[in-house]
Design a protein around this nucleic acid. Structure first.
Lengths: 117, 117
DNA sequence: TCCCTCGTTCACAGCCTGTTCACGACCGGT
DNA sequence: ACCGGTCGTGAACAGGCTGTGAACGAGGGA
């Protein structure tokens, strides 16, 4: 990940939280407020395993309740949209019992994706 | 988007604010003052997600009131005229909760539009 | 004055979002 | 392989935004 002012750049993704905009391989993603905020929260911690509680507190601004699945639901929404925009790559990895890790990785070793991370 | 003096060029559109004229695929559009100004405001920010307030302040020259729908109404008028002039292309994209983004994009994957953006 | 255009404002329908459920698949430990 | 706890995912809901057609009044030209 790299920072340039308020711009987060991870793999083929460029995220500008201030402008509510995320661009994947030159194509602007259609994200809701929560989706973009969660994406930014993940991207700004790229490569780290981030606990749900940390993600929730960052995006929702409140402590995570014991049975709240909001983070999981939004992770799924992001995976779908990122998958559509950048086929052949996985950005969000699950770490069972802990949380998620954001990092570009090929979905399949033999996938013929053209552009690198 | 490209600038040449006072000319904005986005996709098949060419907008000359100084001459109060907008040309789509060689055909001059019939736009009112507000319509042209809003189109110019959008085109000059092509590819960016622009908040309603910014558009309103640029075109109307005053801060956007909380329940003012003028921008939405004019966006609709522009969409109709652009849709007529350039079928098969979408230029104005809604970003729910924020504003609009101006960028040429095919309406349908299978549309046989001849001219590119 | 009459007609027509334009900008503004309404009203209502329809779409999008955030949240919460429900249920099945998956994981790790025993 | 069995089990309890975690995750993935599709769907239902209520509320807030946006799309859209129409009404209104001001202003300009014939």
């Amino acid at each position: 990940m790299s920072r340039n002012g308020s711009v987060l750049s991870v793999g083929a993704l460029e995220i500008r939280p201030d402008e509510h905009q995320a661009v994947a391989a030159g194509h602007t993603l259609t994200l809701s407020v929560r989706e973009l905020e969660l994406l930014a929260a993940l991207a700004s911690r790229s490569g780290r395993i981030v606990p749900r509680a940390e993600l929730y507190e960052t995006v929702w601004g409140a402590p995570l309740r014991a049975d709240d699945r909001s983070v999981d639901v939004y992770i799924h929404k992001l995976r779908v949209k990122l998958g559509d925009a950048l086929p052949g790559w996985r950005y969000i990895h699950t770490h069972f019992g802990f949380g998620y890790r954001f990092e570009p990785e090929r979905s399949h070793p033999f996938h013929n994706a053209a552009t690198g991370p």
